[in-house]
Design a protein around this nucleic acid. Structure first.
Lengths: 177, 177
DNA sequence: TGGATATTTCAGTTCCTTCTGAAATATCCG
DNA sequence: CGGATATTTCAGAAGGAACTGAAATATCCA
């Protein structure tokens, strides 16, 4: 696929952003490309457009599918697999958050809970240390519960919630200043 | 410093979490150690406790200070620099978000704005492509503005906001089901 | 001032992830 | 079936971030 200068810049930047957040650069670039593309793309096209090896595209697409960020679709009369992605930014963001929560936060909750339990039983671990561990656990649990409660809201409602939060913030801010 | 089993596990896990989010493992481990520690630590102590090179600790501490996540303090009668970190999890979280926003989101807003402008002027870039770029820009701007409005709230108020959001979510959820 | 202690810098090494190209496998269709 | 096309797998190469140890620098105090 031909990329205009602006599109190329977008894709490259997205790749860099991904890299900074622990996402493979190729994976992030491919996702950006699929997001911009006006039609599903074949792996071959992706490889050519981004100048990366065909095999790399194959692996990265698997990765994206695993994250729920790319779908395989078929075009009538074309044997090849085509790929597309969700175009609603809010939905994409929610998917990413959901995945990272499931893969990283939830296991962390488990580990931290164990650490706290173990630390409590161990007299060698100072009380204040245990309390700090517990405060992190509590923080992550709070954020986690909150996420589970808002995650199923449709994007427009979510948007309103955000704006509501901002309004409350302004109100509280005025009272404090 | 001596680490109990639970503490060691905590520190190691935190290092791994950091690595997954694009934070240097040593940096994350050091921050976790300082967070747990009941008193400021010297670089030497940190190096020994974590079994990493003294020079590595030096660099990592600089990094943490740059993020506003570690402070140098001095202990009476001790020439060496000691380091400590904020112990309030909410404050730590806000600091991290703030830093990542400043370093990554804000520059991205600039780049995206340029991409959109350029794409709009370029007839070779399809209209729907420009619109998708713009939707990402808009999304990041919304989140950004929201953050700027809530970032100065004291943690307890923030906590209430989160709970309020959850309540609204339940309410909306009930109406929809 | 000079020796001792503490810290930083940096070139080179190590380690790990990512990427490639070739081969293997799968799928399609005449 | 068999040739053509498409996809995946995987061993090795490349590249880059992180780490180390040694040397340089800074700081302190007798």
């Amino acid at each position: 696929m031909d990329l205009t200068r602006a599109m190329e810049r977008y894709v490259v930047h997205w790749g860099e952003m991904g890299a900074r957040w622990g996402v493979n650069r190729s994976v992030a670039q491919i996702h950006a490309l699929l997001f911009l593309a006006s039609r599903p793309l074949t792996a071959e096209e992706i490889a050519e457009t981004l100048s990366i090896a065909r095999s790399n595209v194959s692996t990265s697409l698997k990765e994206l599918q695993g994250w729920g960020l790319a779908n395989m679709v078929h075009v009538l009369g074309d044997r090849r697999d085509h790929f597309e992605t969700e175009k609603d930014v809010w939905k994409i963001a929610l998917t990413i958050v959901q995945q990272r929560k499931a893969r990283e936060i939830d296991p962390t909750l488990g580990t931290l809970a164990q650490c706290v339990t173990e630390a409590k039983e161990d007299p060698a671990t100072a009380r204040d240390v245990v309390e700090r561990m517990a405060s992190v656990l509590n923080f992550l649990e709070t954020v986690s519960v909150w996420y589970d409660q808002v995650k199923d809201l449709p994007p427009p409602v979510l948007m309103k919630l955000v704006k509501l939060g901002a309004r409350v913030a302004r109100f509280v801010g005025r009272r404090r200043s």
